[in-house]
Design a protein around this nucleic acid. Structure first.
Length: 425
RNA sequence: GUGGGCGUAGCUCAGUUGGUUAGAGCGCCAGGUUGUGGUCCUGGAGGUCGCGGGUUCGACCCCCGUCGCUCACCCCA
């Protein structure tokens, strides 16, 4: 295998260039703002971790742990994995640093999974999310879910729904799984090909199988929501009640079972109706009251959600949402003397004005073309005349007739004049 | 891991039953207007037709392989 004659981004990964990158900026800053409003602080953890952090966290039997992780050995023979999801590393950091609780963290991170790419699914994708550790108060469940709801609204989404379920805690779920297993065993022959083989190791998975055969079987079987213990039932009711009081609509979804082993009690998923395909989950999460222990910490409750940036952007596009952020220059400096631009730009930029210039000593006409395409509102012209007069010509690029829409100002007044013009809008 | 569709200039695409120098629009550069953008006109640069092999007198076109892109299954954000 020789080197390719031209490199390109690895399979399932993408470069994000302007102008699309501005939507990423907008999404990210909106999320940072909302997370801050809810009292969350940014936490940054490494993109790779000891492989055990993920194996023990998400469950060795899960598809992600079994065949989708990017695992590698470093030169010191340590085995690491690129993070496939965002929760386990935050929990690891929580255990390591033992911060005071409740610990409310938000993050933005790439996630890596070795899967065949398709619309809305990539080998490197990006997630925004939050985690709260140290309390099982249902008020926190409500807050986390509401934050997601408000954030989606803030970025312009309108056609999405919140699906919610409770998976119970380890004991009541354990008892239920036995009931489910007995039911499945009695109907093995009716399950889809895949689950005829795997129902025994992960019976809960059969619940969210989309195959009609499996649905027919589980429809007649026991539902977890009907077998919660009193505590879990009360917790779930409190969450539903809290959401209702905030006007957050949810749909009870008894078949909603999330893929990672660590989930317990509240489980939820946001689905976008504008996304046609199967990849319509724009966010999801839930409570994971056993995860901290599994990773070696003291028993500690936790809950969080994660949302896929690429899918949010796809959904926004499908809904025709307005741009979150438009990045354009305020000023373009056209300098045919080659002497003045650098100093003038430095003054403008230090005053907060987004400004740029052309390079390579191009003609005034060529520089004006670049100025036009830059989207800048104003052009500053400096030629031999201005230079000798100690002045600068300010030209409004929104107007066609330059003789009516440009003026000369003394060099020392340029920055204040520009600031005033930009303010006037 | 499995299956379908598609790979021709920076981008979007034409390319006649295989026939000689592979085209268009947009974009880019320059000029028309030696100090003025968006319109217009003229000219220019830019392509190993994804890659390798085969069939043929001759392949962008047909066959095989391979790589890539894309969509779907599975799973998930």
């Amino acid at each position: 295998m020789s080197e390719p004659s031209q490199f390109q981004a690895p399979v399932g990964t993408h470069d994000v260039l302007a102008p699309e990158s501005a939507q990423w900026e907008g999404l990210l800053s909106t999320f940072a703002d909302w997370a801050h409003r809810y009292g969350f602080s940014l936490v940054i953890t490494p993109v790779f971790e000891d492989v055990g952090v993920f194996n023990r966290g998400i469950g060795e039997a899960s598809d992600v742990a079994r065949k989708e992780m990017y695992v590698f050995k470093d030169r010191g023979d340590r085995t690491y994995a690129l993070r496939p999801e965002g929760t386990a590393p935050i929990v690891r950091a929580f255990i390591q640093h033992q911060p005071t609780t409740p610990f409310k963290a938000w993050y933005f991170t790439p996630g890596f999974r070795y899967e065949r790419p398709q619309a809305g699914r990539y080998r490197q994708h990006h997630q925004l999310g939050v985690e709260v550790l140290g309390t099982d108060d249902p008020a926190v469940d409500v807050e986390v879910i509401t934050l997601a709801q408000r954030f989606f609204e803030a970025v312009g989404l309108t056609r999405f729904r919140l699906l919610i379920n409770s998976m119970g805690h380890a004991q009541c779920r354990g008892a239920y799984v036995e009931l489910l297993r007995a039911h499945l065993e009695a109907h093995v022959g009716e399950l889809c090909d895949e689950h005829q083989k795997t129902w025994r190791e992960n019976p809960l998975r059969v619940l969210d199988c989309k195959n009609a055969a499996c649905i027919a079987v589980t429809e007649r079987g026991p539902m977890l929501i009907d077998h919660l213990c009193d505590d879990c039932r009360a917790h779930f009711d409190a969450v539903l009640d809290g959401l209702g009081r905030l006007g957050v609509a949810s749909e009870l979804s008894p078949r909603l079972v999330r893929g990672f082993d660590y989930y317990s009690r509240t489980t939820f998923e946001f689905v976008a109706d504008a996304l046609g395909g199967a990849q319509n989950a724009i966010g999801g999460g839930g409570r994971y009251d056993g995860l901290v222990e599994q990773l070696g910490g003291k028993p500690t409750s936790g809950i969080g959600f994660g949302s896929g940036v690429e899918r949010l952007l796809l959904t926004r596009e499908a809904e025709g949402a307005a741009a979150l952020l438009s990045r354009h220059l305020d000023v373009f400096v056209v300098d045919t003397t080659g002497d003045a631009a650098a100093v003038l730009l430095d003054r403008l930029r230090r005053a907060g004005v987004a400004s740029d210039r052309a390079y390579d000593h191009r003609s005034m006409k060529a520089q004006m073309k670049v100025a036009d395409k830059s989207g800048a509102r104003l052009a500053l012209l400096i030629g031999p005349q201005e230079l000798s007069a100690g002045e600068v010509t300010i030209r409004d690029l929104r107007s066609a007739d330059f003789e009516q829409h440009q003026s000369r100002v003394p060099d020392q007044d340029v920055v204040s004049t520009i600031l005033r013009l930009l303010q006037a809008k």
